[in-house]
Nucleic acid binder design. Structure first.
Length: 580
RNA sequence: GCGCCCGUAGCUCAGGGGAUAGAGCAACGGACUUCUAAUCCGUAGGUCGUAGGUUCGAAUCCUACCGGGCGUGCCA
């Protein structure tokens, strides 16, 4: 499709004298497939040529000759519509897909440049709630997509393992805690203590003061406090890693906030040298008012460092360690101001890479009756969501496919996929309401829908094995063959096949757009469309009972769809079982 | 108060200068002796928050207002 676009632009450039760039950006997709695959609106030219747009469209249409991909151009009103040669498209695309197989979709756009993705970053003192799901799945998808595009990607889990909340936990544990309880179920027990602390602090505000003192002790290296903190941290981290393993997510670095503790002083010194830190009411402040931002606190009056100071330190450390081309922070939209301040200070420090840091914000998850709040105990644990999704998937499998082997494993992939995909399909920036019914709905625009399409293709391929031997191995993967040995793709001429092929040709664009716009939802929605086009084909055009070469051509077609669905889901962190 | 984000079908959301505003869910009606019905086909459902403006053309850009959310110096 990219080549087709280029071909049209070159043709129009020659005819109109416009820049190819300008033409490429004005090309659009017509509202219906009967109107072709691309359209060129003639309004702009109308002004230059002082002629009505329909006349220009008509004149251009009469001058355009078919090309490699271009079948014909038709004028319709003020538009010039272009139709692609679908057989030619199929001849190039299908062999490419089955030959590349698991590598289809990979490109070398990144040329090995390093990209850092900071995502997930759970608070160690708190359980992993559905609120953390967004950063985790969006970050993981971006991680995979950038990797596929040829970047060297470093996934960083900037653990929230430092800060005042640990002072609170230390106070709570010393007052009400029991070691045995802690070891039994660390995350939930710490959560219980955290909620309890806030209940008690309502009645006795001096607890808050005590917590700040304990955190300051921690920063100073107080041995007892540090000992407790270490225990909390390692017990929680183990739990989180179990969850990440379940979800198939890996990080290259677990350097959290605590890691930067002994580098903070250096950062503060640097800020002072550059004249960016000023004293105010006993605290250290960066005055950003001249840049239209509220000034921000760098160090509390009690000497304890703050989030932004640790973030500044981390950014500098990361550049020194990785020399990144881009650094993405996949963090909630409520921290937008924090990142504006962070990036501005980096810029004022004269760091030339300050402009390579980007906040990738997303909306928050809320309940019908309001926002989630860890403090008030209003959370849903991600673990519960994943478990329920998996159990429901298991029930459905038992009912619909009782003879399936490895039901538990398939249920895991389907349930997990539904949860991940359900989050990714919505545009990041929008707030989303948490709704059990929606999370546990496996029909329509969902991962199970795509996974199901994939499984049906696998099923057909298994049954059609002997017919596809020429180009497919028994396991359904591609066999390298010369293009002339492949079935005639020109036979794929039905409406369903043509539309499917045209959609398939847009796979690469969807991946690239997802990366450029930092929006996994673009790819997620594309995959739904691809699966939908496949299902339409599937219901109207039999594969296994088709005659001779047509059957082979259809097997080739669906093999390619299978690869695209599987690879596309993979980029989103979702697995595609072969049966379900 | 000020700043940022969001407002599209009953619900959840695509589309973010161009042709008749699209999906899914829910509702209703159809399709399983035929490649797994987690599917497919059809029906119904819309002053694109409101009012102005820019433009040949606005759901899309600008301004104001309304509604919701988030943030706004000692949390992260």
């Amino acid at each position: 499709m990219l080549q087709f676009r280029k071909e049209i632009s070159a043709l129009l450039a020659a005819l109109t004298g416009m820049e190819t760039q300008e033409i490429e950006s004005s090309l659009e997709v017509p509202p219906a497939p009967e109107m072709g695959q691309y359209a060129f609106p003639c309004f702009l030219l109308s002004r230059r040529l002082k002629k009505p747009p329909p006349a220009i469209a008509e004149e251009l249409a009469s001058k355009i000759e078919p090309g490699e991909y271009l079948e014909r151009a038709e004028n319709k009103g003020p538009y010039l519509n272009f139709f692609v040669r679908v057989p030619q498209l199929a001849r190039r695309l299908l062999p490419e897909v089955i030959t590349a197989d698991e590598n289809y979709g990979r490109l070398n756009r990144g040329e090995g440049k390093t990209v850092l993705v900071d995502f997930s970053a759970p608070n160690i003192a708190k359980p992993f709630g559905v609120g953390h799901l967004r950063s985790t799945v969006i970050g993981n998808a971006l991680y995979r997509i950038y990797k596929a595009l040829g970047y060297r990607v470093v996934g960083i889990n900037h653990l929230g393992d430092w800060g005042t909340q640990f002072g609170k936990l230390i106070v709570a544990f010393r007052r009400w805690g029991e070691q045995a309880e802690l070891e039994k179920d660390p995350v939930h027990y710490l959560y219980h203590l955290y909620v309890h602390f806030h209940q008690e602090a309502e009645k006795d505000p001096s607890l808050e003061e005590e917590a700040r003192t304990q955190f300051r002790n921690l920063e100073k290296g107080d041995r007892d406090a540090l000992e407790l903190w270490k225990g909390f941290r390692s017990l929680s981290l183990e739990e989180f890693q179990r969850l990440y393993r379940f979800m198939g997510i890996e990080f290259d670095s677990y350097h959290g906030e605590s890691f930067y503790n002994d580098r903070i002083e250096e950062t503060i010194k640097l800020l002072q040298e550059k004249g960016l830190a000023t004293e105010s009411q006993g605290a250290l402040v960066a005055d950003l008012e001249p840049y239209g931002l509220p000034s921000c606190l760098l160090r509390k009056s009690d000497g304890a460092a703050l989030y932004i100071t640790r973030d500044l330190t981390a950014a500098i450390y990361r550049f020194e360690t990785y020399g990144f081309a881009k650094l993405f922070y996949v963090v909630g939209a409520e921290q937008t101001l924090h990142f504006k301040q962070l990036f501005k200070i980096l810029e004022l420090l004269g760091l030339p890479w300050a402009g390579d840091c980007f906040h990738v914000p997303f909306g928050l998850i809320y309940f019908k009756d309001g926002r989630m709040s860890t403090r008030e105990g209003k959370v849903i644990f991600l673990e519960e969501v994943l478990t329920r999704a998996r159990e429901l998937a298991f029930e459905i499998i038992k009912e619909k496919n009782p003879s399936l082997a490895h039901k538990e494993e398939v249920a895991r992939k389907v349930g997990l996929g539904a949860v991940i995909f359900g989050d990714l399909i919505n545009d990041r920036i929008k707030d989303v309401e948490f709704d059990w019914e929606k999370v546990l709905d496996f029909s329509g625009e969902t991962a199970p829908y795509i996974q199901y399409s994939h499984a049906r293709i696998c099923s057909i391929l298994r049954r059609g094995e002997e017919s596809s031997q020429a180009f497919l191995r028994p396991d359904g993967t591609a066999n390298a063959v010369a293009p002339e040995e492949l079935p005639d793709t020109g036979l794929l001429s039905s409406l369903e096949e043509q539309e499917l092929l045209i959609t398939m040709a847009r796979f690469q664009e969807a991946v690239i757009r997802s990366a450029e716009e930092l929006r996994p939802s673009v790819l997620a929605r594309y995959l739904v469309e691809l699966a939908r086009d496949f299902n339409k084909f599937y219901h109207n055009r039999p594969v296994l009972t088709a005659e001779g070469e047509l059957k082979e051509a259809r097997l080739l077609l669906i093999s390619s769809v299978r690869i695209m669905l599987r690879n596309g889901l993979e980029l989103l962190g979702v697995e595609a079982p072969e049966e379900m």
